[in-house]
């Protein structure tokens, strides 16, 4: 994709992920009066004092910096829903809970720019940290299951930042496994003197391993 900082490794930098996350829509409550903004991505506004408006995150941050609005933290950033997500993350060792695709980036942007708009910011912040840790641990234990017959990895509900972190490693691993498992490399599955379970009973090469 054009505009990546490191085209060789097919990975976005964290700052680039943050940039992409800034297009997410968020609710603000302006304290000024302004005509609607007609942008390429859509029309936002009109802005009336105390009337909530939907704007992209970058616009919300820009208005917030100038003291023109307060940001309403999204539904999922409340303590109740985060606690619930954390509990179900811990309960189900295989599945990921649905969270916004950019939850890591959005939460950091809000923590940086709108601390006074988030109630119980310390609690929310540590909950999100915990959720991220639990989820990443799950990703890592899932990585252990990659083996020679894995040809694709299904990661439902994984967020952008989490995918981006494991991307270089997973791509290289799958490439290596593919190289060493190719039919030219394994000529005849000759049994060695000791047990070699993977040499026998080789199934067809296209199975999609569920995670």
């Amino acid at each position: 994709m054009a505009g990546q900082s490191d085209p060789q490794s097919s990975v976005f930098s964290a700052a680039e992920m943050e940039f992409l996350a800034e297009d997410e829509i968020i609710e603000v409550v302006p304290n000024m009066r302004m005509e609607p903004l007609n942008l390429i991505s859509g029309d936002y506004g009109p802005f009336r004092p105390q009337i909530a408006a939907q704007v992209p995150l970058w616009l919300a941050v820009a208005l917030k910096k100038r003291g023109k609005c307060t940001i309403r933290p999204p539904e999922w950033m409340s303590i109740e829903s985060l606690t619930q997500v954390l509990e179900s993350e811990r309960d189900s060792p295989k599945e990921f809970q649905p969270l916004p695709f950019h939850y890591v980036e959005i939460s950091r942007l809000l923590f940086d720019h709108a601390r006074d708009d988030i109630p119980d910011i310390y609690m929310v912040r540590s909950l999100i940290e915990d959720i991220r840790d639990v989820r990443f641990h799950k990703v890592e234990s899932g990585l252990e299951t990659i083996s020679a017959r894995t040809h694709a990895v299904k990661l439902k509900n994984l967020s952008a930042m989490e995918v981006n972190i494991v991307r270089p490693f997973v791509v290289r691993t799958l490439q290596s496994f593919y190289k060493h498992d190719s039919p030219e490399m394994i000529q005849q599955p000759v049994q060695m003197s000791t047990s070699r379970p993977q040499a026998t009973d080789r199934g067809p090469r296209r199975d999609l391993r569920r995670r």
Partner: peptide, 13 residues
């Protein structure tokens, strides 16, 4: 030695 290929895969895995 025909076992090198499967040996590599075994080692890497």
């Amino acid at each position: 030695d025909r076992t090198i290929g499967s040996f590599l895969l075994y080692a890497f895995k």
